[in-house]
Simulated scan of single mutants.
Amino acid sequence: MVAGPPRSDVTVPACVAALAAGRPVRAVWENELGGLTFEVGADPDRCFVKWAPPDSGLDLTEETVRLSWAVAFTPVPRVLDQGADGDGSWLVTAALPGQSAVADRWKAEPRTAVTAVGEGLRALHEALPVAECPFSWAAEDRLADARRRAAQGRVDATRWDPAHRPLGVDRALAVLAETPPHDRLVVCHGDSCAPNTLIGEDGRWSAHVDLGRLGVADRWADLAIATWSTEWNYGPGWEGLLLDAYGVRPDPDRMRYYRLLWDLGD
């Protein structure tokens, strides 16, 4: 499946119902690994509960510590609670102003949305201090992890983009062995797909969500995926606008490298 709003009825996990304490609960997002995000309550006490099943491989602790660090520098969700039981793990965060860049309103206004995503990503990269960041998302670390998972038979090339599938796992790893020189090190979002930018009523970016992979890396690790996601979410032809909004010229070699590396991710 592709991440997005749930396509069918969702059973609310017991822990989420307990956290809601009688307040309204609405499922708003489902990811490829079975994780769910719920909107709970209404303003001014509205919050979001992210839940992951125990066998999903999702580690919400990683996102908790990253959010707790990043919130001092840029608009990201404030952590309210985090925990786990035998049925899964959860992360509760305060609501932020704005809607996802792939909400119906913004999908109908792709020029506004893509501009906001590009400007928001640049602002995130400018705001988060590399020297103070304790987390890494470096290509070398990600490649080492991909090699470990490949050796365990845990890399599935059938899930890759069609352009990458003919390479196969061994050839893809060989291509990735030559890491491009850094253009500029920044604290990357780690999942810079369009849905993770929030847009305010004024059409400008307002915050970022889903920072479970945040860490220091070349900025093209984020830019390659942000531009790629414009095609997934708005159709072809929007990559240039995002790069213009960010303020950088295209770099096809780095984009190809980081997109292939993304496909080999967990």
Rank of each mutant, 00 (worst) to 15 (best):
P97H: 10
Q99C: 06
A101D: 02
A101T: 04
D104M: 06
D104C: 07
R105W: 10
R105P: 01
R105K: 10
R105M: 06
E109V: 09
P110W: 12
P110I: 09
R111K: 09
T112K: 13
T112F: 03
A113F: 10
T115S: 06
T115V: 03
V117M: 04
V117H: 00
G118V: 09
G120P: 05
G120S: 07
L121I: 10
L121T: 04
R122H: 06
L124F: 14
E126K: 09
A127P: 06
L128S: 02
A131P: 00
E132K: 07
C133N: 04
F135K: 06
F135A: 06
F135E: 11
F135Q: 13
R142G: 12
L143D: 15
A144P: 13
A144D: 15
D145A: 14
R148W: 04
R148L: 14
R148V: 12
A151C: 11
Q152V: 01
Q152I: 03
Q152F: 02
G153D: 07
G153N: 07
R154M: 15
R154C: 09
D156C: 04
D156R: 07
A157M: 05
D161C: 01
P162W: 12
P162Y: 07
P162C: 05
P162S: 05
P162T: 04
A163H: 08
H164Q: 07
D170A: 12
D170S: 07
D170C: 01
L173Y: 08
L173D: 11
V175Q: 03
A177L: 13
E178G: 10
E178T: 14
E178A: 15
T179A: 15
P181D: 13
P181M: 14
R184G: 13
V186K: 02
V186C: 11
V187T: 14
V187P: 02
C188F: 06
H189A: 09
H189F: 11
G190L: 13
D191V: 15
D191P: 15
S192R: 01
A194S: 12
P195T: 06
P195S: 09
N196Q: 06
N196G: 13
I199K: 01
I199H: 00
E201A: 12
E201H: 10
D202R: 09
W205L: 13
W205D: 01
A207N: 10
V209P: 00
D210S: 12
D210T: 08
D210I: 07
L211V: 08
L211G: 04
G212Q: 15
R213V: 09
R213F: 11
L214T: 13
V216C: 11
D218I: 07
W220K: 03
W220Q: 02
D222I: 08
L223K: 00
L223Y: 02
L223H: 03
A224M: 00
A224N: 01
I225M: 10
I225V: 12
A226C: 04
W228E: 03
S229Q: 01
W232Q: 02
W232G: 00
W232F: 00
N233R: 05
G235F: 00
G235Y: 03
